[in-house]
Design a protein around this nucleic acid. Structure first.
Lengths: 220, 220
DNA sequence: GACTATAGGTGTACGCTGTACACTTGTCAA
DNA sequence: TTGACAAGTGTACAGCGTACACCTATAGTC
């Protein structure tokens, strides 16, 4: 019976495994993520997982598609700038939730959610009147920026807000050359007080790019 | 004697280890890179490495700084756009050579070459007349774009040029819905013939961003 | 309801990893 | 020549992914 199975916490499905894997990776990071750890999380012996995924690599493929599925699709109804903006903000949010996925989004075998996402973006741009070539360019800049920003945002979190500046200052003090990296020192001094906000930072660059693209579109 | 030592291929230095590590990672990738493999490459027993680096993590820190050291510094003599352009192109080239480094550039403990690099970029922007806040923004967009583009370029290499499109087509054919991803199919059909060139693609987006920044600078 | 095929969970084992710790060896200063 | 110290070695251990053989609970048929 389904009920009994549920109460006995058994009879995993592939979706169960993928979901638990994503949550587990969220908690402990990709470095520490292991098949054995995931199995323990699911109250099951490691080899049980292999009845639902072929191996760790294919598990990762599936996890990435789960992440893609959380990203809001580029809408076909909004004007292109709003649609791209929403999709970019959604992507950043999702990658913030699942930061282990950041370097992997485009390096795994693409799943259905991935294809749907890319298709929607390209469709949005083409319908907005971009030529094929310019649409490809526009897609490329935006995605590079989004993924690159997510990378930076994650890595900033690693250090204290301004530890690079601190490192610079420490090093300078050590070597007795406090002015070896004057501009990093400036960052270390000014950034903490400036109420630096990563969402605002993301939007600043995003809008710069989108407005640049709009100018080109109008010229086509 | 130094000569004898040299002929006997012994007496490693930390620089030897870092250099060999970078080359080895270039060849076999980060996934397959191991302390044992590196030791073998150097004709030495694994534990010998630990006399020169604290552990694998610290070795990686050192490797990343070697990579930073290969990047051309932002020149203080050129106009800011040329300086940023050169530095961006150099960064892309270096990351293409050492693609294992792409996700790691800003996530490791910063070394001296890293600090020098960042200091030079920030200095270039400030001297060009950008306010502190705008310089931070300008830095952020550019780096996000550069790192994100490097990521994409690496991942494209993983698949055949258009395997995403192929995947889309395969999937569509399987499900009997060839028009499920029409825009991906368009990519698969048109891209191969269009003489797609990743350097050109990189410059397209880079110039879009730099020109956008110049417009803002003139307004400040 | 009993019977059986099979999907799903288990246990054991192997080769790989990073690295702790105790050791030997080679090289330079005195 | 000696003696100290840096550099290289050997052994060992816990943790990893996963192959393979095994057992078991469930679902579909009679």
């Amino acid at each position: 019976m389904e009920r009994r199975a549920a109460t006995k916490r058994k009879r995993l499905s592939r979706a169960d495994v993928l979901g638990a894997a994503v949550s587990h990776a969220d908690e402990i990071g990709l470095e520490a993520f292991s098949m054995r750890g995931l199995a323990q999380e699911l109250g099951v012996v490691p080899m049980a997982l292999y009845k639902h995924v072929a191996n760790k690599d294919e598990l990762l493929d599936g996890m990435i598609d789960v992440v893609f599925d959380e990203i809001e699709l580029a809408s076909a109804d909004l004007d292109w700038r709003s649609a791209m903006r929403r999709r970019a903000l959604s992507t950043r949010e999702v990658l913030k939730r699942h930061s282990w996925a950041i370097g992997l989004m485009e390096s795994r075998h693409p799943g259905p959610a991935n294809l749907r996402n890319h298709n929607a973006v390209m469709g949005c741009l083409r319908k907005a009147g971009f030529s094929f070539e310019t649409a490809i360019h526009a897609y490329s800049v935006q995605d590079a920026y989004i993924y690159g920003f997510a990378l930076q945002e994650r890595d900033l979190g690693f250090e204290t807000p301004d530890s690079a500046g601190d490192a610079a200052r420490r090093r300078s003090e050590t070597t007795g050359l406090l002015d070896e990296y004057p501009y990093l020192v400036e960052i270390a001094e000014k950034l903490p007080d400036s109420g630096y906000d990563t969402l605002g930072e993301f939007e600043w660059g995003l809008d710069l790019i989108i407005e640049g693209l709009e100018r080109l579109r109008l010229r086509e």
